[in-house]
C-alpha cells in the first residue's frame, strides 16, 4: 500500500510541479460511508522539488490541513434555574468547518509567528466563523471557543504536531484520521511548505465524503419522501411484530 503511494508520488514528481517547489497527493479522492463505516485514515504524501538536500533540511516545515465542509452552528449557554441546568442565551455562528485537522512537522508555534499563522488562517485557535448573529465579536468569542471545544472532544478538530514525517530529505508523509461522525461533502487537503516562518509553496487537493448505497438512499428517502418512509418503518414494525407472534405460537 505505502509502496504504491510512493510510486504515485514519484510519478507526480515527474510531472510539472503545481506549486513552486512542492508536490503532494492523497491516498484516495473519495471516502464512501457504507453501513459498516467506522472511520478511516487518509494518507497525505508529497515531496519538495528543486531543493538542494542541505538547504532542504534546515528551517523547513510542512503543514497539512484537512478541512471539511462548512456548517452553521447554534451554541447555547446553560444556566442553572432552580437546581436544573437549562439552555439560555443562544448564538448562531455560520460557516465554521465541520472537520479540521492540522498536521505539522513541529508544533505550530515553532513554525511561524502567531500573527503569521493568523494571516494564513492556520491552526484551530484561528478558526473563525464567516458570520455571527451579533455585531460584537467579543460577545461571540466564548461561543466560538465552545464550538472548538466540542469539536475537539468529538475528535472532529485536532492538531497533530510532529505527525508529518520525512522519509528522506525530500519525501514526507502523514496519516490523518477521518472519524465515523464526519458529515458528507467536499473536503480539502491543503499542504503548505514553510521556510523560516513564511509559506514558500502550497497545494490544495479536494476529496469527497459521500453516503453510498443503502445509507444514502435511506437518508434521501427520509427527506424527499418522508410519508412513504414513515409508512415503510411502520410496515417493518408491524411485519416483525406479526412474524414474532406467529413464530411464538409455533414454539409453544
Amino acid at each position: 500500500m505505502t509502496r504504491r503511494l510512493f510510486l504515485s508520488a514519484l510519478l507526480l514528481l515527474a510531472s510539472p510541479a503545481a506549486a513552486d517547489d512542492l508536490v503532494s497527493g492523497i491516498s484516495q479522492d473519495q471516502i464512501a460511508i457504507t453501513s459498516n463505516y467506522a472511520g478511516t485514515d487518509i494518507v497525505v504524501f508529497g515531496a519538495i522539488e528543486n531543493a538542494a538536500p542541505a538547504a532542504a533540511v534546515s528551517g523547513r516545515d510542512i503543514v497539512v490541513v484537512v478541512r471539511g465542509p462548512d456548517e452553521d452552528f447554534t451554541v447555547r449557554k446553560r444556566v442553572r434555574v432552580g437546581g436544573i441546568w437549562v439552555n439560555s442565551t443562544r448564538m448562531v455562528l455560520r460557516g465554521m468547518p465541520s472537520y479540521y485537522y492540522i498536521a505539522t512537522t513541529r508544533p505550530l508555534n515553532e513554525i511561524a509567528s502567531p500573527s503569521a499563522l493568523r494571516n494564513y488562517d492556520l491552526g484551530i485557535d484561528n478558526l473563525q466563523p464567516a458570520e455571527e448573529s451579533t455585531n460584537n465579536p467579543r460577545k461571540a468569542e466564548p461561543y466560538r471557543l465552545a464550538i472548538i471545544r466540542e469539536r475537539t472532544r468529538d475528535h472532529l478538530y485536532a492538531s497533530l504536531p510532529g505527525s508529518v514525517e520525512f522519509l528522506s530529505p525530500t519525501l514526507f508523509r502523514v496519516r490523518i484520521p477521518v472519524p465515523a461522525t464526519v458529515p458528507p461533502g467536499q473536503y480539502r487537503v491543503e499542504v503548505s511548505l514553510f521556510r523560516d516562518g513564511t509559506i514558500m509553496g502550497a497545494q490544495s487537493t479536494p476529496f469527497f465524503v459521500d453516503q453510498v448505497g443503502l445509507e444514502r438512499r435511506l437518508f434521501e428517502a427520509a427527506h424527499a419522501k418522508p410519508f412513504a418512509y414513515g409508512i415503510a418503518t411502520v410496515v417493518l414494525g408491524v411485519f416483525l411484530g406479526w412474524l414474532s407472534s406467529v413464530l411464538f405460537r409455533r414454539a409453544t
Binding site: H223, P226, G237, L243
Partner: peptide
Amino acid sequence: AATTVLQAVGNYTVDIVLAAFLIIGGV
C-alpha cells in the same frame, strides 16, 4: 404507528436502521 409517520414527516427523525435492530432484539 401514527407517531412514527408524523415524526418522519414533521421532524425527519425516524431512523429505520436503528428501528430494525431494536425491533429484532425486542421481539
